[in-house]
Design a protein around this nucleic acid. Sequence first.
DNA 1: GAAAAACATTTTATGTTTAAAATATTCACA
DNA 2: TGTGAATATTTTAAACATAAAATGTTTTTC
Lengths: 164, 164
Amino acid sequence: MDSASDQAGLDHESRLEHGDHQAVRLWLRLLTCTNLVERHLRNRLRKEFDITLPRFDFMAQLAREPKGLTMGDLSQRMMVSGGNVSGIAVQLEGEGLISREPVPGNRRAFCVTLTRAGQKRFAEMAEAHEAWVTECLGNLSGTETEQMMAVLKHIKHDVSRIEP
Amino acid sequence: MDSASDQAGLDHESRLEHGDHQAVRLWLRLLTCTNLVERHLRNRLRKEFDITLPRFDFMAQLAREPKGLTMGDLSQRMMVSGGNVSGIAVQLEGEGLISREPVPGNRRAFCVTLTRAGQKRFAEMAEAHEAWVTECLGNLSGTETEQMMAVLKHIKHDVSRIEP
DNA sequence: GAAAAACATTTTATGTTTAAAATATTCACA
DNA sequence: TGTGAATATTTTAAACATAAAATGTTTTTC
């Protein structure tokens, strides 16, 4: 279906009433924007490579750590639960894209790495992925990009001070 | 579990290698940031009001359209699939927070509105929600907020020109 | 050195989300 | 007016996500 995105101007921001605070306005625009890009990437990955975003993400984490990562590492970096990572790993292993081997000095943990096939497959996808992201965010000026990076850093800092 | 988020510095951005393009870097930071805020709001809504973010979103859309919306309207505005909206509606209707009535001249569509109980319930939640968002995004300077709003608008415009 | 605590992962149960198919209604138009 | 396209919604199946419990391993502590 996916007809939800192809009508511009009716989105999360339409939730606003007059007098709503600036922070809420900003949040809804941020959410809309991120969802828009995320959906686009998700659709492309599915169409061109028949893979989901979480699986791509999983492989991306491994691609930059040739020595491998444990399941817990992956859970942290992907910011999802351990059970979730476990499920994705089973699938990717079944497709021969990753391998899980015991860690010498620690029988609890696994060391997860991309197989040769996984490396090859990921390299192809990463190239396309980067092009798609550039299509979405590459038209900003240098100033805009820098501003955005700075403000996001600020937000990240503020939010991480809030928890629980 | 939810231990995935409480370790700062290891997140989507850790996916980066040297030489990756600026657009990818920006995208990963944008994604991380939005996920961080979204997770925070989701947890709070669950803890304080025992409601999920999608259900809150659903009610928020209705709150600003007292005349009601169709299922398709809701799908568009929430940017989720029709089936998703359908499932949420069944639940909220079961809890007596919304009502669905036939549209006079169109037997296909429903007109969905908040019930009196739904309005009351939403008003309470909305106040808390706004406070939480302000906690996350309210510490930015006026300039930062304006820059962010402008750049996001730019991105939204660029992305909506891409689709297939 | 045994008990307790912490750790790493998987399993289970439940819920969310999506795409696609199915159902039903309305519209266009020849 | 009847046929096909478009519209509005629900259902279905599969993937994703979480919290909590279960399993097995390592470390701490007394």
